[in-house]
Amino acid sequence: MSSYTWYPTSEQYNRVCSALVTKYQFLRDRTEKGYESWHEILKNKFKKERSPLVDIEEINKVRSRFGKAKNQMISQSTQQTCITKNTEDLSVVQDMHQKRQRSEESESGEDAHSIGIHVEKMRTECMKRTPNIRLLQDCMARTRNERTDYMKHHSTKETLSRYPALKIPAILVLEFESILDANIEKNILNNLALVAQKVIDECHRREVGVDICAELAEAKKTHIDLAHKGLSMAAAVLLLPLLFKESPRSLYLINEEPRTPNPVLYIKGRALVEESLLEILMEGEKVCEVDDLTMALTVLMAIHFIFNIEYAAKMKNTLKFVEKFLMCHNAETKIPPTVIKMANFLFD
């Protein structure tokens, strides 16, 4: 799109997103149109990419049109030049200042009054049908220290009530990535794509996860070839615990509501069917709904880190593998030999 314009219209966004989910059905979200989340993501992506650019004529024209000269006494031609240059410089400086300010204020620059304002702003925004993700991300950054302390002394239900943005998968992932300063979602998708087929083949060889493998084969018959990779990755998420001889029930349950306090995925329906309901629950409380199994895995890892939850004993090796070899998180913790051995096999 950027080769045609850096400022697409709403109609252009809609056309591109509609074409995307039409060609790749597994990317459809649960909104009415099936692509509203992609519309927001693409729109934010353009904003982010435009911000640092200073040598694109189209962008400079828009900036100069809405910019303000610092000195109203200079000539019109010089004034226009100053507007363009100052707007560009100011954009970069403001971006750097805001990032530094968010970091500093999230650590020590907020008091009870300002925290209350951010919390109320978050609640108001979350009541909208399409919340402003960037605004919520800012509120999350500014309340991070207070929220971390609040979680230590309150239940999941109370925390989700006070900080409703934690019910939005995109916010959970962004907060997670901000904590670790890494593109975790991208790492998981890329690395899972590398090992998915090998996970499936090994489970087939061991004759474990027979039902999931059968469902995968059936699902592939009703999907176009382009969707098969996504289906294989989703199946790999379900099969991964079986390779470590751990109980999948500590990661997900199908048509059986979880009774564990740990974060777990509840699947209502058939696991690899698009119409299935996928919910993340913790301490009996629904945290959020997710669109697919790969996102579910990312959100589950995010919740463990954001809420500072230890891995369940019956799922420790699986989640350690995800953390170290799918997320690529270089934590200073000992990696079990079983996990290293499995990683060497899958990535060989």
Rank of each mutant, 00 (worst) to 15 (best):
D201E: 12
E202K: 13
N308S: 15
P337N: 04
I306N: 06
D138T: 15
N330F: 07
I188F: 06
Q94M: 13
L243M: 03
K85I: 09
I184T: 01
Q101M: 13
K341A: 14
L172M: 11
R63W: 01
K314Q: 13
K229T: 10
A214Q: 13
F176C: 12
P164H: 03
V16N: 01
G269F: 07
D149I: 12
L42G: 02
S51R: 15
A165Y: 10
D95A: 10
T87C: 11
S64C: 07
V199I: 15
I280L: 15
D211Y: 03
L346K: 08
Q101S: 11
I303A: 03
R147I: 03
D89P: 00
V210K: 07
R123L: 07
A165L: 12
R123E: 11
F305I: 15
E289S: 15
S75I: 02
V290A: 04
E105G: 02
I340T: 13
K157N: 08
T130I: 12
E257R: 15
N14F: 05
A296G: 12
L319R: 02
K341D: 12
I83H: 00
I224M: 10
N330I: 00
D138L: 03
H113Q: 14
R142H: 11
N183A: 14
E289T: 13
Y4Q: 10
K186A: 09
S77H: 11
I306M: 08
